[in-house]
């Protein structure tokens, strides 16, 4: 479904992605972890072309993202993106946030879009918050609206960029719960996160990135119990002792 072939990216002089080779299958849940600055956020931001790659190939479901002529509108409609900072539109209610894209991009009529919107908001547990503004919602609720916003387009892929990093501890679980349900339903997901519990339970594979390189990738059992690289071991030791 998603394929990185020898992908490189530079930010000016800084080489942020060094020869990434990665294949993600349909219905797979991949967790990407690594220290700050390892390029993991950049990696998923390349998938919906929030960042452009300079070398290599990035193919999503036969569409070549690296090609300038690619129809990004069509592609982005199939990909849902959840940001660390939620990025909900503050001047719109939860329902409006969720239905904006379906109405404008897929040209769904308003009534139908609102029905879909109600459905996804119910799914993330916010059926009673349809007409509230982001400022009236807690962080966890806002992030769940953000997930609903991505889901309302009925995407094939959901990308999560550190979805719980900006949340207070007591709200992390409600968001992870939604993500767990999504995974159970067979959504293709790539999640950049530090939540190792989630990685262990839900993911099919865990990938470790450091300094722009994909160091190691393995199913969670193997990854946590028998990390192969020294750098992976070092990272895990730091992150698992708290």
């Amino acid at each position: 479904m998603i394929e990185f072939k020898d992908v490189h990216k530079w930010f000016g002089e800084l080489h942020v992605l060094k020869g990434i080779n990665l294949k993600v299958e349909s219905a797979e849940v991949l967790v990407v972890c690594g220290p700050s600055g390892s390029g993991k956020s950049t990696l998923i931001r390349c998938i919906n072309r929030l960042e452009r790659i300079q070398k290599g190939e990035l193919i999503i479901d036969t569409m070549k993202v690296h090609d300038s002529k690619a129809n990004m509108t069509k592609l982005r409609a199939e990909i849902g993106f959840v940001f660390q900072q939620f990025n909900l539109y503050p001047h719109m209610t939860a329902l409006q946030n969720v239905t904006l894209a379906p109405m404008k991009v897929r040209k769904t009529p308003k009534k139908e879009a609102e029905d879909q919107g109600r459905y996804v908001l119910e799914k993330v547990g916010l059926a009673d918050k349809l007409h509230q503004f982001p400022a009236q919602l807690s962080g966890g609720q806002q992030q769940r609206v953000a997930i609903a916003r991505g889901l309302c387009m009925r995407p094939k892929i959901m990308l999560f960029d550190e979805p719980t990093s900006a949340l207070d501890p007591e709200m992390i679980n409600e968001v992870l719960e939604v993500m767990r349900n999504l995974a159970r339903e067979g959504m293709t997901m790539i999640v950049v996160t530090h939540e190792m519990g989630f990685a262990r339970e839900v993911s099919h594979r865990v990938a470790f990135m450091d300094f722009g390189e994909l160091i190691e990738i393995a199913p969670p059992g193997e990854f946590f119990a028998h990390p192969k690289s020294e750098r992976t071991k070092l990272f895990l030791s730091k992150i698992l002792t708290h």
Partner: peptide
């Protein structure tokens, strides 16, 4: 915040739709 633009872009909205709605 630039994040607003990114969220709109990620949903597939084009330049005019972004400007007008977000």
């Amino acid at each position: 915040p630039h994040g607003q633009v990114e969220a709109a872009v990620s949903s597939g909205l084009n330049y005019f739709q972004r400007m007008r709605c977000v």
